[in-house]
C-alpha cells in the first residue's frame, strides 16, 4: 500500500493529521483552479476552505475506485467555484468575467510561501502552443468533458484525447 492510500484511509477515519497532509499536497493546486474560475483572491480563499471542509465532511463518500483523490477534490472545488460564479452577488460584483486563460494570471513575482516555482512554470507554460493552453484551461481548470472541449475548440472529438496527451507530455518534459 502506498503512503497516499494510507493517508486516504486515515482521512476517511477522520484523522486530522492525515487531512492536513492531504491539504498540504493539494491545496495550492485547488486554490489555483478556484482562482482561475472566480478571479478574486478573497473569494478564492473562502472557496478553498469551503471545498476542503466539504471534502472532510463527506470523506466517507470518497471511493478510490471512482478516481484519484486529487481529481475528487478538483471536482468539488470546480463545482463550488462555478456555483459561486452563477450567484447573483457574484454577477453583480463582476459583470464580465475575464476571458483570459489561466496562463495570464500566473503570478509574476516569486511568492515566498508558494511551494511551487511559479516563475519557472510560467515560462514553461508560455512555451506551450495556444491549443494546448486552451485545452488545459478547459479540461483541467474549467472541468469540460473532452466532447465539450472539442465543440468549444471546433476540433474533432477523436483528436482531442491524443492532442491533450501530447500537451501534457510536453508539460511533463518541462516541469518534472
Amino acid at each position: 500500500m502506498t503512503s497516499l492510500d494510507n493517508l486516504i484511509i486515515r482521512f476517511k477515519n477522520k484523522e486530522v493529521d492525515a487531512f492536513e497532509k492531504l491539504y498540504e499536497m493539494y491545496s495550492d493546486s485547488i486554490y489555483g483552479v478556484i482562482m482561475n474560475i472566480v478571479r478574486n483572491e478573497e473569494m478564492a480563499t473562502e472557496l478553498l476552505q469551503d471545498s476542503f471542509l466539504k471534502a472532510w465532511n463527506n470523506a466517507e463518500t470518497y471511493n478510490s475506485k471512482k478516481g484519484r483523490f486529487f481529481t475528487w477534490m478538483l471536482n468539488i472545488a470546480r463545482n463550488s467555484a462555478i456555483d459561486k460564479t452563477r450567484s447573483k452577488a457574484f454577477k453583480q460584483s463582476r459583470k464580465n468575467l475575464d476571458s483570459s486563460l489561466f496562463v495570464d494570471i500566473i503570478p509574476d513575482n516569486e511568492n515566498l510561501d508558494n511551494k511551487t516555482d511559479a516563475i519557472g512554470i510560467k515560462n514553461y507554460v508560455k512555451a506551450l502552443g495556444e491549443t494546448c493552453k486552451q485545452l488545459i484551461e478547459l479540461l483541467y481548470f474549467k472541468g469540460f468533458t473532452h466532447k465539450e472541449a472539442a465543440e468549444e475548440l471546433g476540433n474533432p472529438i477523436g483528436t482531442i484525447k491524443t492532442r491533450n496527451r501530447n500537451c501534457i507530455k510536453q508539460l511533463r518534459d518541462m516541469v518534472l
Binding site: Y31, G32, F102, I105, D113, N114, K122
Partner: peptide
C-alpha cells in the same frame, strides 16, 4: 501547473 496559478498558499 494548477498550483502555479494560486496567488499564494
Amino acid at each position: 501547473l494548477t498550483a502555479s496559478v494560486a496567488p499564494g498558499t
